[in-house]
Write a protein that binds this DNA or RNA. Structure first.
Length: 209
DNA sequence: TTAATGATATACT
DNA sequence: GTATATCATTAAG
């Protein structure tokens, strides 16, 4: 059951721009979306870190554009973008203003509004509702228009709450990246069945944290 | 169980 | 024109 305690302060590591610590901190927190007096939420079980001087896979590595504008905002802002022309992905912005870093939220264990999620996703299996970055945005109804550049402390539409403690964390290379040198910056709850399905070569490189 | 394919917006060559 | 922080479907092993 939701504790309903919105997080109103990011930890020091997130304010300072430590993306790896930020990715681990996000695990176990509840991502909540409010729409027309209904709440849709899930516990974050998979994340990836993006940003830093060596990270060519970061959207803001080259330059500031209309799409990645939100990444330059303060820690706690949400960055939502459209990928492959059809799916949205949501990130939590990390680091100081004008320091483009973020944590990609890749998977949730659904806990509120599951019936609606099933309808939106056309899926009956609970573990398939939010087991990928595009899937969870579809399940929670996240899109650019409503949620990009909203801030977790103040938004009436999307925020984070204290969730559960995840004791066993695994890490692996990030998924879906080919141009950049791959970094082991994907973190997930080792025992959750709701994480995204990684390709074989990624699964071989999974290790405990 | 694993791999190939198409849908399709945005950014870059 | 080509690549991409994806997913569902289809085909093959």
């Amino acid at each position: 059951m939701p504790l309903n305690t919105r997080i109103l302060q990011m930890p020091h590591c997130i304010e300072q721009g430590d993306v790896v610590s930020a990715a681990k901190w996000c695990l176990g927190k509840r991502l909540v979306v409010s729409h027309k007096d209904h709440l849709y939420s899930g516990i974050i079980v998979e994340t990836e870190a993006y940003g830093g001087s060596e990270d060519k896979a970061c959207h803001a590595y080259q330059r500031r554009t209309a799409r990645n504008e939100a990444m330059f905002a303060s820690a706690g802002t949400f960055y939502v973008y459209l990928i492959y022309g059809m799916y949205f992905c949501i990130n939590l912005v990390v680091g100081a203003t004008d320091d483009p870093k973020a944590v990609l939220i890749r998977a949730l264990e659904p806990d509120n509004g599951i019936a609606t999620m099933r309808r939106r996703r056309k899926q009956t299996k609970t573990e398939a509702l939010c087991s990928g970055p595009g899937k969870l945005c579809q399940a929670l109804g996240i899109n650019i228009k409503l949620h990009n550049q909203e801030h977790a402390y103040t938004s009436a539409r999307v925020w984070l709450e204290q969730g559960i403690v995840i004791s066993e964390i695994s890490k692996s290379p990030r998924i879906g990246i080919s141009q950049s040198t791959e970094l082991p910056w994907r973190y997930f709850a080792a025992s959750s069945r709701c994480v995204s399905s990684a390709p074989k070569e990624v699964r071989r490189k999974v290790e405990p944290v």
